[in-house]
């Protein structure tokens, strides 16, 4: 399934001083995939667009901290 959240698994040494972070994540925002924006893409309503920060559904990709994800759960 397509996601704008990517993961990789860095090498973990048996001699690392700190408890390892086994999975590292990074974001590949939707603007990387579209090229020149094609016409007639789906839009939010004006009110929603002002709240979300974009008129175009394809570019909406909100970011939540691990803290928020743990406490609220069901974001995106």
């Amino acid at each position: 399934m397509f996601t704008t959240r990517k993961q990789y698994y860095p090498y973990i040494s048996p001699f690392d001083p700190c408890p390892p972070i086994r999975v590292k994540t990074y974001v590949t925002a939707p603007n990387l995939y579209l090229g020149f924006q094609p016409p007639n893409l789906p839009q939010f309503s004006p009110h929603e667009a002002l709240q979300k920060g974009t008129l175009w559904k394809v570019f909406y990709d909100p970011y939540y901290s691990p803290y928020e994800m743990a406490n609220k759960g069901d974001y995106k």
Binding site: P30, Q37, G53, T54, F59, Y64
Partner: peptide, 20 residues
């Protein structure tokens, strides 16, 4: 964070427009 999310979304749109 709500305000910061709005600002972050605008960065995405700006990057798109610069790419265009």
């Amino acid at each position: 964070n709500d305000g910061l999310r709005f600002l972050r979304e605008r960065e995405i749109v700006h990057a798109q427009r610069f790419r265009e």
